[in-house]
Amino acid sequence: MYISLMRILIIHNFYQHKGGEDVVFTQEATVLKDKGHQVETLSFQNKKGIKGLFQFLLYPWNSFAAHKIMKKVADFQPDIVHIHNTHYAIGPLAFRKLSKRKIPVVLTLHNFRLLDPSANLFHNNNVFTDTIDKEFPWKSVKNKVLDNSLLKTFWTAFTIYIHKKLGTWKNIDRILSFSEFGKQLLLRSTLQLSAQNIVIKPNFALESLEEKQIEKKDYFVYIGRLSEEKGIDSLLTAFSKCEYIIHIFGDGPLVEKVKQAAQLHPNIVYGGFQQKETLHQHLSASQALLVPSIWFEGMPMTVLEAFACGTPVIASKIGILEEMIQNKKNGLLFEPNDDKSIIDALHTWQTLSIDDKNAISENCKKDFSDTYSSQKNVLLLETIYKEAIQQAKNK
């Protein structure tokens, strides 16, 4: 299908610390430019101190950010505006201004903030979905689910709530969810979104990851943040009870616990924080990537990168991971927060034949090519944009 070239404005708010959302924002802008579209970007940055407090207090109705966006729109005259993160230096008012001008808008949901101020539906080391179907998340406010702050939690909840009542979220032409799982959570909520307006659009990894073929070694690998929600505790417990080797890369609040486990158990190897090239080498050489998360992930880039180089994924049977990983097709699944289940999955993998392992590796590469490649994603984005533009015209 032929897609005419478009003028695309992509907007993103950077947190104080870099994250996966920033990678998606940059990669999508790049591949759209490479396809020949006229792409311009506009970014905001969360600040610290007094400036940060001012930004946060303006969160429900930030006319300054909205004015900056509308000025960019007036200068660039885009066919469509694609917004990534708006928390909290942008805020939802920008959607209302764009809708009033009948400018088509697409929003990528990188987390679950529209459903709960926690953004990750995780609290006290457990999945927390109590407030999804509530008009206002009072339980989340009481539990101070956002940074253990009553003010931050309430103000974020109030911002989402007031714009729900004003119909702001229903005026967005297309909302992009990474998975069917995420889409169904949105439809369960009190946001009253149209199923037609929620489109499943996965992330993608760069094809350059496929280029080098590295000989497989006899170890597994974990790459990511070292924190409770990532299932680090159950991962360490599992490998302390078996002889399989795990190489762990990353940093986070549980780093000391990981270092201690590595000192006590020679099969647990801590590699610290490493550059992407080093991580790719270990990912390519490993038997499988371990993703022991006990929360609802967005769409882990490490999983896509593993698929790109033909490395299977052994992951928790929870949320989007259960959707991405098909047992013995592109990896294995185990029960979340269950060290015995992790060991059983490792044993299952090790007892597979070489032919079965090779077949699973090839399936990973096929899944990447069919679903998570930049070529597939840019085609999907173009189609989504065209549909959003048409819908805006029909309003």
Rank of each mutant, 00 (worst) to 15 (best):
G182S: 13
V221N: 01
L146R: 03
G319P: 06
I198A: 03
T156F: 09
M324V: 13
E243M: 09
L346K: 12
S118P: 04
S373W: 04
L42N: 02
W295D: 07
V105H: 05
E28C: 09
K68A: 09
K48T: 12
Y2K: 12
E387N: 15
S4F: 05
Q213C: 02
I103Q: 06
F76D: 07
S293C: 06
L146D: 08
K393W: 10
I314F: 06
N330T: 05
Y59M: 10
F334H: 06
R101G: 13
I175H: 11
H67A: 06
L187F: 03
Q390V: 03
T351V: 08
N120A: 11
T131P: 05
I320G: 05
V145G: 01
R7E: 07
E180G: 07
G331T: 13
K257D: 04
K33I: 07
L321Q: 06
N363Q: 14
I172H: 02
S353Q: 00
G331A: 10
K395F: 08
L32R: 01
S149R: 03
I360Q: 11
I342R: 10
I162H: 10
N126C: 14
A205V: 01
H67N: 12
A66Q: 06
D75F: 08
P78F: 01
S240I: 01
P92M: 01
D370V: 05
G319L: 06
T131Y: 08
K257W: 02
I325H: 04
K102I: 11
E335S: 14
I325C: 07
T371L: 10
I342D: 11
H163G: 03
V303A: 14
H87E: 09
D147W: 10
S99Q: 11
T41G: 06
S227P: 00
D344L: 06
H17P: 04
E323M: 02
V81L: 14
V23K: 07
F178E: 07
Q350S: 09
L114S: 07
C309A: 04
E277K: 07
D147K: 15
R101E: 15
K317A: 12
D22M: 07
Q350M: 09
L151F: 13
N197E: 15
V291F: 03
T278L: 11
F220L: 02
N203V: 03
K393P: 04
N120H: 12
F307M: 00
S4C: 08
K47V: 08
I246E: 01
V81T: 15
V258E: 03
F334V: 04
S284L: 05
E256C: 02
P137D: 03
L58V: 00
D339S: 14
Q213P: 00
S284M: 02
H163L: 07
Y270K: 10
Q16V: 14
Q196K: 15
I232W: 05
L109G: 01
Q16W: 07
